[in-house]
Design a protein around this nucleic acid. Structure first.
Length: 405
RNA sequence: GCGUCGGUGGCGGAGUGGUCAAUCGCACUUGACUGUAAAUCAAGCGCCCUCGGGCUACGAAGGUUCGAAUCCUUCCCGGCGCA
């Protein structure tokens, strides 16, 4: 009995898109599926029952963060991630690979998952403004300096998987290195080889443990913006097998992108990855990106957007994003989004949310996050239905026309 | 009434002769956020203008000085003390 089973119900004709069902030991996911982010075993500002009510099916936590706090052994003692945080459904953990990037080459430079076109010259002009990074990478692994207390911690692929085994999520990720699109080709080349070696070691370690029958391991494809590297990475990752002959249970597509590079990268990769296994586009979540990714064959997506934006006062609406701090909403007694039936929209007005944000009430972040999670989860659900009933393209066109207005 | 301390930008509060359109908080305005270093961060915040600069400003009015938010005089207002 494999850790997960993935069944494709219908494909989106003429594209790489598909709708399916992914079954885990803690329930099944209807894909395409938006994965809610709960980095530190908590979806920030939202309790699990509310998360569930938004329609969210699965929560993704983070290995690096939980290792530092409260410690993976403690989560294991608690009975695993889901039990610890009172989330009944499926769970995932990221490997810490993204922190190799965010606390490493990206640290203090104001760059993240997506490169802002305008920052490129600034960054290359003034790299000395960056804070000293907290990560040192070598052949074998990565040394992290805790962002909490400065203490040193060394992650290898085996260590990351060991921690993820203790945390106990249904789906876990290989330890990888997310690279910055700013890095030159020669560095992308080296880093990719490293990610492949680490992937193989992650898989080998994972498959050597009985728990691999319960937890599924996803390998991660990198390669930056380079076609040659992306395609090679897809092939290598797809063909990687442990000594017991088994490969990855699914795949993650990673990287920090320039927005215009993302679609081609995803397509190059998904044309090569085996169709019968699930594909997770790591860290992507803006509406237009989700349409792109679904159409190009991705099944899972996670993104901090809904909760981070929500907490900081921005909400998604069918006509675009809205900054609730703005003066125009102080006397606006309509709901956030006329087309939304989430808990927040059912019960509260823009003026009330505006008040909560200005008053710095915690409930502001909660209500806005609930709305945002619902908005994105619901959007991906509609994409799924669109694939199943043949209306995907119409849904996409209608949505984007209004959203991009 | 006498004495005393004080009146600074929306608010609190620095400054106490030049480097002051005025530190800093807050509020306000706007922006950013895509495998969470984030309930965070950035910019703006007297008026005019394109960088540069110009103009009006530190209760009011005068005065001293090359130069005043800063010193002097009077007045107005507030706190406190004594009558």
């Amino acid at each position: 009995m494999p850790a997960i089973t993935f069944t494709i119900n219908k494909k989106l004709e003429g594209t790489l898109g598909r709708a399916g069902v992914l079954e885990t030991k803690h329930g099944s996911l209807q894909t395409p599926c938006f994965v809610t982010v709960g980095t530190k075993a908590a979806v920030k500002a939202v309790i699990p029952e509310q998360v569930k009510d938004t329609g969210a099916q699965v929560v993704l936590s983070n290995t690096y963060h939980l290792y530092l706090q409260p410690g993976h052994e403690r989560i294991e003692k608690a009975g695993g991630l889901g039990k610890f945080m009172n989330w009944q459904g499926p769970t995932m953990t990221d490997s810490g690979g993204f922190q190799v990037f965010s606390l490493g080459s990206a640290y203090g430079k104001g760059i993240g998952k997506l490169l802002k076109p305008s920052t490129e010259p600034i960054l290359s002009a003034a790299p000395e403004d960056a804070k000293p990074k907290l990560v040192d990478i070598d052949h074998d692994g990565a040394m992290f300096r805790s962002h909490l207390d400065g203490s040193a911690h060394y992650f290898t692929p085996e260590k990351s998987i060991e921690i993820q085994h203790a945390i106990g999520a249904d789906m876990i990720f290989a330890f990888d290195e997310c690279t910055s699109p700013m890095e030159p080709f020669t560095y992308q080349r080296q880093a990719l080889d490293r990610t492949h070696r680490w992937g193989k070691r992650s898989l080998e370690y994972h498959k050597s443990k009985p728990i691999s029958e319960v937890q599924a391991l996803f390998g991660i494809v990198q390669g930056g913006r380079h076609e040659e590297l992306r395609k090679e990475s897809a092939k290598v990752t797809a063909e990687t097998v442990a000594s017991n002959g088994e490969g990855f249970d699914g795949f993650g597509i990673g990287g920090s992108f320039a927005k215009e590079d993302m679609e081609t990268a995803v397509r190059w990769v998904n044309e090569i990855l085996p169709e019968e296994k699930p594909r997770h586009l790591l860290g992507i979540g803006e509406p237009e990106d989700l349409f792109m990714a679904v159409e190009n064959g991705c099944d899972l997506f996670d993104c901090t957007g809904p909760t981070r934006l929500g907490r900081t006062g921005t909400v998604y609406t069918s006509t675009g994003k809205m900054h609730l701090h703005n003066a125009e909403f102080r006397d606006d007694f309509t709901k956030l989004d006329a087309a939304c039936d989430c808990y927040t929209c059912t019960n509260y007005t823009r003026a009330y949310l505006s008040h909560l944000f200005h008053a710095k009430e915690m409930e502001a972040g909660t209500l806005a996050s609930i709305h945002n999670i619902h908005f994105i989860v619901n959007l991906v659900d509609r994409m799924r239905e669109g694939i199943l009933d043949g209306t995907f393209h119409a849904i996409k066109e209608n949505f984007l026309k209004k959203y991009k207005g």
